[in-house]
Design a protein around this nucleic acid. Sequence first.
DNA 1: TTCATAATAGTAACCATTACTGTCTTGGCG
DNA 2: CGCCAAGACAGTAATGGTTACTATTATGAA
Lengths: 149, 149
Amino acid sequence: MVTIMNKVQANAKPAGLRMTRQRRLILEELDAPGRHPTADAVYQQVRRRIPNISLGTVYRNLEVLSQAGMIRKLHIGSGQKRYDRKLHKHYHVHCVQCGRISDLPGGPFGDLEEVARGNSDFDIIGYELEFEGLCRQCKDSSPRQREPN
Amino acid sequence: MVTIMNKVQANAKPAGLRMTRQRRLILEELDAPGRHPTADAVYQQVRRRIPNISLGTVYRNLEVLSQAGMIRKLHIGSGQKRYDRKLHKHYHVHCVQCGRISDLPGGPFGDLEEVARGNSDFDIIGYELEFEGLCRQCKDSSPRQREPN
DNA sequence: TTCATAATAGTAACCATTACTGTCTTGGCG
DNA sequence: CGCCAAGACAGTAATGGTTACTATTATGAA
């Protein structure tokens, strides 16, 4: 596991990280904007180019990359973890019907941390905020079931 | 699974729910204020009074009770689910070091939903907000590892 | 008291994720 | 360019939390 990154530049990789074909394709998969795929979804996609890639490789890379700060790991709802190319600070809405996840412009809400700091003896270092609702499709058409992404 | 509750009064159970010894003790376990136990922690506690209670029974009851709105299911961090007797609207802080969870007075932040509503075509129905930080003990003493509760 | 059915104990199955192992690749260095 | 230490890989087994199944028991309305 990579713990220290002593050379992080724009588009650069932390020291000790090699750029393999697998890793590059996984990153590319996350580069498409507006996607928040699960590990398995990344696996299914990359598999079309490297048919014998291992699911473990996908998990390991997603972990390493998020440790290195190149992607973000999201804990949304109670299901699988999701991964996001972290470009700018933003939030997510989560459809309780079909599971779809969308980006939400706006924020950050810095004052939330202030309120928390005033009310607790914890050393507040941040917060996780996820909105829930019904997406367009589930709102006005018959709800479809469980599409991951 | 209970889907409809047509008779909910103060301290009353929804129609169709029977009050068994197991269910009562599980509820009592959650009644102690300031606790946010995992399913397994509830299991360990109740087991001292009903030694042969089944872990499945605990899970099923926690599910049924939260469906009935009598308790709240929390998804905090990436670990196990936690359960909370839902008395009033409040938030939680989560120690990233030891995993401890504390209540946080203050809120609700109703304006968050307004902002989200303005920025999305989702039908926003709520949000999940969890703060993260270091608890008192982990802040100034040597950190202890992973106490659930 | 009766009796339909909710709930239980015990156990097996499930699913996402992590760990392990022996082999292969990468990339810094000469 | 070729060497080679160590990072990464594929394949597979193991883990851990949670859910599903089944035959039996207990609840509570009539």
